[in-house]
Design a protein around this nucleic acid. Structure first.
Lengths: 232, 232
DNA sequence: CTCCGGATACTCGACTCAGAGTATTACTCG
DNA sequence: CGAGTAATACTCTGAGTCGAGTATCCGGAG
């Protein structure tokens, strides 16, 4: 979907839910929660109403009527339009077919990890393993349900990705502990010299030169050196 | 970081870059790109300037002076403050230590996959494998550099996660092809009846009842049934 | 019967995101 | 020398986020 269109998967979930039958917004959220969709799709009140406003504006849903239950506030019932059904299917096909570039925070953190000393980084990564074990236990429990797999496919995906991340972190931690990460000595030396008062600018200049000189000459991605900050 | 603070990793990258030496915004982006950081951190012009405005407002960076290169537009040079260095380190420690809940589009798509027929879903997933193979080849090439591993750790992480996703999708595709996904028959039958003109509401009622009756009684997450939409 | 807390239904406002946009300079090539 | 394009430096605006907010009803407990 183009930038001028919706991009929040919650909009897709709203379209899907309204394809069953017309509903008011609060009820849509109830149905999504009953089905456990909040584990895979961010469900926030503010987002829900702005997404609904945008879907209506784009002609993908339409308000059919207002109703009320007892003396409670009136609520607006929406129905999906034919255009909305089409848009939902197109959007879902694209999501399933084309891998999207995501930017997880952890990957960003790893790209800047040299700001921390190697020992500190190793300790934090070790603690991350504990957090991942807890997440994995939760994800396994989420599948311990009397449901056919087809209803649990996204939970199995989440578990698979958590296990992959855990394996990666465990391996990195183990190799850091025994000095088997290439560049680890340089990393440690940078932090020793920082602690002794060397300036970052100087270290960057020295370090930079030391590395690129042995390389191909052209400076490549992904990671050039990101030196540590001085800590007061 | 609390909601009133920054959450975009680009802000962290800006703080890290300014810890080396003061720079103007355009130069910060140049340095981040030279180091290949755009593979792990979203780099958008709009975001960069708003992040810089916010860092300044929060006292994490400060404008030191304006300068100009030749007759080009003036540019403001920023320096990190002591508070900024501290904030950067705290934030990075948290990112490395604590696994964050991410909501990848693919997981959202999987949670709604029954909107598509099983044959169509299998075909789209097969095409996804091709896209993943291309991404994996790119990720492998990104590490084929004369750099120590410590500069490539985030690229190795990305590769590990892509390979895990690929394994998951390949397994799912293989089992769909041979009818070994529990619930696959129900899924196919729903789509056969939709094609014959049965209403979604009716299918949902029947289907819902069929499943939950055999369960524990309480409706659990993660996935209750999400029935398909009618396609005109 | 009264009180209280959860449920119901939705809004607000500050902030962030993102991609296209503007304006000017400088360099390269014909 | 002029034209065209890339580089430089930044802005704009619509969309999205989010967490707290508002207002009222309803059901359960005392």
């Amino acid at each position: 979907m183009s930038r001028s269109s919706l991009s929040n998967p919650l909009a897709l979930a709203v379209l899907a839910t309204l394809s069953e039958e017309p509903m008011h917004p609060y009820r849509i959220t109830q149905v999504l929660r009953e089905r456990g969709k909040e584990h895979s799709i961010r469900l926030n009140w503010g987002s829900l109403y702005s997404v609904i406003a945008s879907l209506e504006k784009n002609g993908l849903i339409e308000a059919t009527h207002s109703e009320r239950a007892g003396s409670r506030p009136e609520r607006t019932v929406y129905a999906v339009t034919d255009a909305g059904r089409e848009a939902a299917l197109s959007w879902l096909r694209r999501i399933i077919e084309v891998p999207a570039k995501e930017y997880p925070d952890f990957e960003a953190g790893l790209s800047l990890i040299m700001l921390l000393g190697p020992d500190e980084a190793a300790a934090l990564l070790t603690r991350r393993l504990e957090g991942l074990d807890a997440r994995i236990a939760d994800a396994r429990a989420a599948q311990d349900l009397p449901l056919p797999e087809i209803f649990l496919v996204e939970a199995r995906f989440e578990l698979a990705m958590l296990e992959a991340e855990r394996a990666f972190v465990a391996d990195l931690v183990a190799r850091l502990a025994t000095g088997r990460v290439d560049g680890q000595d340089l990393w440690a030396e940078m932090h020793r010299r920082l602690a002794q008062g060397d300036s970052i600018a100087q270290l960057v200049a020295e370090f930079d030169d030391h590395l690129w000189k042995e390389g191909t000459g052209a400076r490549p991605g992904p990671s050039g050196p990101t030196p540590p900050t001085t800590e007061s």
